[in-house]
């Protein structure tokens, strides 16, 4: 059931990202909502959950894009895993820590994406790549400021709560 809700939230994020957020760009760059959710999910529930949500989010993103399916999968799985490593190390109720985790995770995912593009022979000029990574990371960090309280609640008491073992 939890995976169904996670998929639903990821799909809503994907629809917003491909539509509404186009009107809210900063220097032509949009935030990455799907990645943001993957990172926060990993941060709250651990690496394993981070990898799964990254796989799901990346796959949905890839299917909708319709080409190079898997680019987002690898980038988001890595970000989810990395964020999950902070699960037991950091105090999860601290907003500032969540923001830093999101900004680091976002940057790592975008760098992996960039490296995969290079591997495919798609060259992005250094200045442009750097600009994208910096703005996405800052934008995602800023969104965390508004979304984290709600998302944390949903993940600890709401529909994305870890099922209790009986």
């Amino acid at each position: 059931m939890r995976i169904f809700f996670l998929a639903l939230i990821l799909m809503v994020a994907l629809v917003l990202q491909t539509t509404v957020l186009e009107f809210l760009t900063i220097f032509g760059v949009r935030p990455d909502l799907v990645l943001l959710i993957v990172i926060l999910f990993g941060f709250i529930h651990g690496s394993r959950a981070g990898v799964y949500s990254g796989f799901l989010g990346g796959l949905l993103t890839g299917f909708l894009a319709g080409n190079y399916i898997g680019l987002s999968v690898l980038a988001q799985m890595a970000a989810g895993y990395l964020a999950g490593m902070g699960e037991n190390r950091f105090y999860k109720e601290n907003l500032l820590i969540a923001i830093i985790v999101v900004m680091v995770g976002t940057s790592v995912a975008q760098i992996i994406y960039w490296l995969l593009l290079l591997m495919l022979g798609i060259n992005i000029m250094f200045v442009n790549g750097l600009k994208i990574i910096l703005i996405v990371a800052l934008y995602n960090g800023a969104l965390t400021l508004f979304l984290y309280k709600w998302f944390y609640h949903v993940n600890t008491r709401g529909i994305l709560k870890k099922p209790e073992l009986e």
Binding site: L14, V15, Q17, T18, T19, E22, V29, R30, D32, V34, T61, L64, A65, S72, Y113, W114, L117, I124, I132, I135, V136
Partner: peptide
């Protein structure tokens, strides 16, 4: 146009 690419690269 009904949607855009999800990322910032493409």
């Amino acid at each position: 146009v009904i949607g855009r690419n999800a990322g910032n690269w493409f």
